[in-house]
Simulated assay, not measured.
Amino acid sequence: MQFLALSNGIKMPILGLGTYCLVGKNGQEAMDKAIQIGYRLFDTAQMYNNEDRLGNAIQSAIKGGIPRKDFFIQTKLLEANNEDSTKKSIEKSLKALKLDYIDSLLIHEPYASSKEMYKAMESFYQQGILKSIGISNFGAKAYEKFIQNCKITPMINQCETHLLLQQKPLREVMADKGTLLQSFSPFIAGKGLILENQSLRNIALKYSKTPAQVILRFLIQHGISTIPKSSKEQRMKENLNIFDFTLNAQDIQFLNSLDTNQSSFAWTNY
Rank of each mutant, 00 (worst) to 15 (best):
I62Y: 02
I227A: 00
G16Y: 00
E83F: 00
A142G: 14
A45M: 03
N137R: 11
E233F: 02
L163G: 15
K168A: 15
N157E: 09
Y20N: 09
A45N: 07
L181I: 10
W267E: 15
M121Y: 09
L97H: 02
K119T: 07
D52A: 10
G192Y: 04
L170D: 01
S183Q: 01
H162M: 13
V23Q: 05
F146G: 05
F146R: 08
S85L: 07
D100V: 07
A61L: 02
K237F: 00
T226Y: 04
Q213E: 00
P154D: 05
T260P: 02
K95M: 03
I90F: 05
I227S: 00
L78A: 11
E196G: 02
F42Y: 09
S136C: 00
I66K: 01
A5T: 12
H222I: 14
I203Y: 08
Q126L: 13
Q234S: 08
L41M: 08
N239F: 05
N202C: 12
G178F: 08
S257I: 14
K232W: 08
A112C: 04
G139D: 09
I194F: 02
L4W: 10
R171C: 11
N137V: 05
R235T: 03
N26Y: 12
N239T: 08
T210H: 03
L164Q: 06
L78K: 06
T226K: 03
A57R: 05
S114D: 14
I227G: 02
D52V: 09
L106P: 08
S113K: 02
D32K: 02
K168F: 14
Q250S: 12
K191C: 06
T44W: 00
Q74D: 12
I14H: 00
Q182E: 14
R53C: 14
F72D: 12
L195E: 09
A266Q: 12
Y20K: 00
C21F: 09
K87Q: 13
P110D: 10
L15H: 00
N248C: 11
M121N: 05
K87D: 15
G192D: 10
I152A: 10
I188Q: 13
F243Y: 11
K131P: 14
N256C: 08
N197R: 03
Q166T: 13
S113Q: 09
E29C: 10
N241C: 06
P186N: 11
I242N: 07
Q213F: 01
Q28L: 01
I133T: 14
H222Y: 15
G223K: 06
D70E: 10
C150Y: 05
L22F: 04
M47W: 12
G223H: 13
K177L: 14
N202V: 04
N50E: 04
Q127W: 03
I37C: 04
I252V: 07
Q36P: 00
S185G: 06
L105D: 01
I62T: 00
S199Y: 15
G178T: 06
T179A: 07
F146V: 10
Y207I: 11
